[in-house]
């Protein structure tokens, strides 16, 4: 239950910190850390304009997407503490729940009947498909070195902080960070601030959503960041210190994660779109290296 609460709290400020970092790096003061969540609250209070082409799927998709991410959040543990729901190989369900949400967002994009949305949908489904094996390989290597089969078991073993665990955890963190970037359409795969529809991925998919539904999409994205942030924190969280200290470390890691994303976005240009596939395959290759490494540990 603790992890679910922490995920909710993190999701409130996470994107704000990214934005703040970017503006500080650019020499501006920048908006409040809670500005994104205020924007969402504003969106939630608005009415809606739907495309006359779209139908039932557009109405359903943002809701289902949010529901899947909330359900997936229930499966994420906090260090050794059990998640709300935990069973062996729960991470398979976790991955497929996220895929269900993605499925609905992709078909909602096609529902608008425009070439822009279709473009975004095609890209999103291609990249997420390529990334799928990375998550499973990292979890397979965790299963192998910790001899556990569930999120909770794996992370409580990792909490013992053996050197060999740490080595695998470092590679795992790299992969998780990249999965989070692709899932949330961030640099270097996608630029959320771009103004040209032709080069967008995620933004162009939700081009025809507004008001309440757009708010839901934003919340979903905040939650996804917080979920992956929690997974990352779990990889390096020492299990032998008191819970209060763990929570402090947790928030420090979340802040660091957000600042890293902000700095990357400040200094890096985006990949050329046709290079994205290679970039993602490189991430998959690193997860394979992590797996091979665990065989020798």
């Amino acid at each position: 239950m603790l992890s679910f609460g922490l995920i909710l709290i993190t999701s409130l400020f996470f994107t704000g910190i990214i934005g703040r970092t970017k503006s500080l790096m650019a020499g501006r003061k920048g908006p409040d850390v809670f500005q994104p969540i205020k924007n969402v609250l504003l969106l939630l209070r608005k009415g809606s304009v739907f495309s006359s082409t779209s139908g039932l799927i557009t109405q359903l998709a943002p809701t289902i997407s949010l529901a899947t991410v909330l359900t997936a959040a229930l499966l994420v543990p906090f260090n050794g503490q059990q998640a709300v729901i935990s069973f062996s190989y729960d991470f398979v369900l976790f991955a497929y729940l996220l895929a269900l949400g993605r499925f609905f967002m992709i078909i909602a994009a096609l529902d608008a009947g425009s070439s822009f949305q279709g473009m975004g949908a095609a890209r999103e489904s291609l990249y997420s498909m390529l990334l799928e094996p990375a998550f499973f390989m990292i979890l397979a290597s965790f299963c192998l070195i910790t001899h556990n089969s569930s999120f909770a078991g794996i992370f409580s073993s990792l909490g013992q902080m053996n050197t060999e665990f740490l080595l695998a955890a470092v590679l795992a963190i790299f992969v998780f960070v990249n999965i989070a970037l692709v899932e949330n359409s961030r640099l270097p795969v996608d630029d959320p601030k771009t103004h040209l529809e032709l080069t967008m991925i995620h933004e162009v998919m939700v081009l025809d959503l507004c008001g309440f539904d757009l708010g839901l999409v934003q919340i979903t994205s905040f939650l996804k960041f917080a979920i992956f942030g929690t997974l990352i924190a779990n990889c390096v969280m020492p299990g032998f210190i008191p819970v209060i200290a763990q929570i402090a470390i947790y928030f420090a890691i979340q802040m660091l994660f957000a600042i890293v994303i902000g700095s990357v976005e400040s200094f890096r240009a985006r990949n050329r779109l046709n290079r994205n596939a290679q970039y993602i395959l490189a991430v998959v290759a690193i997860s394979l290296i992590a797996f091979v490494l665990t065989l020798f540990l």
Partner: peptide, 14 residues
């Protein structure tokens, strides 16, 4: 919520 607000439809953004 949407029942109380203005919900209209327009052409797809292109």
């Amino acid at each position: 919520l949407l029942a109380k607000r203005s919900v209209t439809s327009g052409p797809t953004w292109c």
